[in-house]
């Protein structure tokens, strides 16, 4: 067992418990503390530098995510040009469509994505459509379709022949002899 004097000697305190000479002894081993603080400071600086290097510049710009990702996603090229673009050149088709119910349907709904054709109309040409397939996608009879939507069982209606044999797809209703001849395109 150690006595009070030995204890005080180990702790660097004054036996009397007064401040003074014992206080100096308290910082006798301060170099341990300095080393500890130095290690923590170096770790902190390393963390700050590493964090600045690793976390993207725009992280936190709008929220807890990389703000630059919005611009990256927005800058993808489009595949469908949009009907406004088509209509700028193909005014004859626009005039045809205005006369029938298909006026509301966008060009690329049937003709497919054609932004590449817009970029280079000469070399990229839209494919010729098989109306027996394209028309049936919408107009094949199905009990789940709205009742007022025009539908036919193609096997009975046409026997599988191409729809544009009788109908003009841009203006599908078969009308009087006059409009039928001029509508053919």
């Amino acid at each position: 067992m150690l006595g009070i004097k030995e204890h005080c000697a180990i702790l660097g305190a004054d036996v009397t418990g007064r401040y003074g000479a014992g206080n100096a002894n308290l910082f006798k081993d301060i170099e341990h503390l300095i080393r500890l603080v130095a290690v923590i400071a170096i770790a902190l600086v390393a963390f700050v530098i590493l964090r600045a290097a690793v976390v993207p510049h725009s992280f936190g710009q709008y929220g807890h995510y990389r703000g630059a990702a919005i611009g990256e996603i927005a800058s993808r090229p489009v595949a469908f040009a949009g009907h406004d673009t088509c209509e700028a050149c193909h005014t004859d088709v626009v005039d045809q469509k205005k006369l029938g119910k298909h006026v509301v349907i966008a060009c690329e709904a049937c003709h497919g994505a054609l932004a590449k054709h817009v970029d280079d109309p000469g070399s990229v040409q839209p494919k010729k459509l098989d109306t027996a397939i394209v028309c049936a996608r919408c107009h094949e009879a199905n009990s789940a379709k709205p009742k007022n939507f025009p539908q036919v069982a193609t096997a009975d209606h046409s026997g599988g022949i191409a729809c544009d044999t009788c109908h003009q797809p841009h203006r599908p209703k078969i009308e009087t002899a006059k409009t039928e001849t001029e509508g053919k395109k």
Binding site: I73, A74, S75, R76, P77, V78, A79, F80, G82, H83, V104, I105, A106, E108, A109, A113, C138
Partner: peptide, 16 residues
């Protein structure tokens, strides 16, 4: 990438 350029979505574009 379409709506930020003033176009509608591809699905809305083609919905007949």
């Amino acid at each position: 990438h379409r709506i930020t350029k003033g176009l509608t979505t591809a699905c809305c574009e083609v919905c007949p």
